[in-house]
Write a protein that binds this DNA or RNA. Structure first.
Length: 536
DNA sequence: AGTTTCATATGG
DNA sequence: CTCGCCATATGAAACT
């Protein structure tokens, strides 16, 4: 059962039940209180909800205490389908979708997707007489047809389901927030930066600025300015290409250790210091806006707060509520395992059955040198051509020709101007340049080479997330963080073991859904800890 | 003064 | 030989 929804102003809306093939099963129903209607229907028969955009509709439902099990996000799906057809970046919002169906000029994505019927005329770029519910129902039927016409409809349907479920999780995480102890964050800052100042940098930054100036002969300088630091070094006869940390590490000068410490602390102060805390942490929660499908590879992005770049030292402040704990799960060595699965390389899959893929790889082909095996693997996935990894790469190519050919082929396709797809069918965007020459083509090849792996890894993680969400439904446990290959569940202590079991089961489910009976394993590192910083 | 690019950090 | 992939965010520097 599917129920199409069009949200309207003032919390009202219209709904219509559809059959699995998208054809209407009953009349359109206008409701004054959409949240109440969704709540009742969800409790009654838990349909798949069909709407233009989860990001637009669902947050308001959440604020009214309503959660749903499943949905079909029309606009995210449209973006996937357009991309599949090599039309990446074309308008994918409801108005554009409708215009295409009617053979009218397609409006850009700037308009709002859920306009009131009576207001349609205000938006000149949306078809006259635009009815959001009608557009949604018709668009869905159209998408079902297009989904069926893809090379692997089953896989693409899974992608659509996972993308839609991801949008639900993203909205829920943004709503619930990550538990954050402002006082503990303050302790970390005080410990590392010293007392804050109302007007300038904290004590430790001031001291380091002083010490660095002394180390350069007492000239007053600003260590946060790369140009000044380069000049200061050059006055002492040391010419550097940049002030990057790894460059400085190779320089023998008394200012170097001070500068390295300054960089770290200055970064902490400006990006995750007291003003960040004041802006983003409220009532014990850090609330960011997560954007499902925000990255071309299908990874999530965030808007505001830098939720996917939280420095490890600051994770000390992520502490579970009293009587609660975190179950933290991290997929280890996800990308090489994905490569083994998608390439169908039996030999690499054999290594990927092991808990430590690199160790197994080393034993098989690198005389037990794990570091070398890891370097070769990363080099192959990223398209490294030079450096110390070259002999290791040759060994990898000789020993795992099937996996090697898989990434090489993706690279060649990119260099030749072609498009590549993930396992489930997410398609890379076309190159922006008309024709590629030399270094441009090689860069494009590295991008497509990595895309087939990174995008598939994102699909595996998204599938795990969706499966886990379903398993946690109806319990008080909450998904509170998701970072590419890592999830955090905030749970009452007495449910922690159940949650851990659910995470493991979701991981196994994700592997089966994507790759069937492939021998490749996708192990998860699990820890149950009251503080994120203590996770393994 | 406002906007864009560069340099550098963080995360995976 | 921090090199090869995907991002966000900050402040400095350079631009309009």
């Amino acid at each position: 059962m599917i129920v199409a929804v069009a949200a309207e102003e003032g919390g009202a809306g219209r709904v219509q039940p559809l059959g699995d093939d998208g054809t209407p099963l009953g009349p359109v129903e206008a409701v004054d209180d959409l949240a109440a209607a969704v709540r009742a229907r969800e409790a009654a028969d838990a349909p798949r909800w069909l709407w233009a955009s989860t990001a637009q509709v669902y947050p308001r439902l959440l604020r009214q205490g309503v959660r749903v099990g499943r949905c079909h996000d029309l606009e995210l799906t449209e973006a996937l389908l357009l991309g599949y057809d090599g039309r990446w970046g074309e308008p994918h919002r409801l108005g554009a979708l409708r215009a295409r169906r009617l053979g009218l000029p397609v409006p850009p994505d700037t308009g709002t997707a859920t306009v009131e019927p009576g207001q349609a005329a205000l938006f000149e770029d949306i078809p006259a007489g635009f009815d959001p519910l009608e557009a949604t129902v018709d668009g869905y039927a159209d998408q079902l047809t297009r989904l069926a016409a893809t090379d692997h409809p089953g896989r693409f349907r899974l992608l659509v389901a996972a993308e839609s479920a991801g949008a639900l999780v993203a909205a829920e995480m943004g709503h619930d927030g990550l538990p954050w102890r402002a006082d503990v964050h303050g302790e970390v800052l005080l410990d590392l930066l010293g007392e804050p100042s109302a007007v300038g940098p904290p004590r430790r930054i001031v001291e380091l600025t002083e010490a660095i100036s002394q180390a350069f002969g007492g000239v007053r300088l600003h260590p946060e300015s790369p140009a000044e630091i380069l000049r200061a070094f050059s006055r002492e006869g040391i010419v550097l290409p940049s002030t990057r940390a790894w460059v400085l590490k190779g320089v023998d000068h008394p200012a170097v250790p001070l500068l390295l410490e300054f960089k770290e602390l200055y970064r902490l102060w400006t990006a995750h210091g007291w003003s960040w805390r004041a802006q983003w942490v409220h009532d014990g929660r850090f609330k960011a806006e997560y954007i499902a499908g925000g990255v071309v590879s299908g990874r999530w992005a965030t808007r505001g707060g830098g939720a996917l770049q939280i420095p490890k030292v600051v994770r000390r402040a992520v502490i579970a509520d009293d009587g609660w704990t975190f179950v933290v799960a991290d997929a280890s060595q996800l990308e090489p395992r994905v490569l083994a699965a998608v390439a169908g390389d039996g030999r690499l899959a054999e290594a990927a059955r092991s808990g430590d893929l690199y160790e197994a790889l080393a034993a098989d082909a690198f005389a037990g040198d794990r570091a070398k095996a890891k370097l070769a693997m990363l080099g192959a996935m990223y398209g490294q051509t030079g450096g110390a990894a070259v002999p290791a790469l040759a060994a990898l190519q000789a020993r795992f020709p099937v996996a090697w050919e898989y990434v090489e082929r993706a690279a060649r396709t990119g260099e030749g101007g072609g498009l590549v797809r993930s396992w489930l069918g997410r398609t890379c965007p076309p190159s922006r340049a008309e024709s590629l020459s030399g270094e441009q083509a090689r860069a494009r090849g590295r991008f497509t080479r990595n895309f087939v792996i990174q995008a598939t890894a994102a699909e595996w993680a998204l599938t795990l997330l969706a499966a886990l969400r379903t398993r946690l439904a109806g319990t008080p446990a909450r998904l509170v963080f998701f970072q590419h290959d890592e999830v955090l569940v905030h749970t009452p202590l007495d449910l922690a073991e159940d949650v851990a079991a659910s995470v493991r089961a979701a991981g196994e489910q994700a592997g089966r859904l994507l790759f069937g009976d492939s021998p490749v394993r996708f192990p998860l590192e699990l820890s149950t800890v009251p503080c994120y910083a203590d996770a393994a």
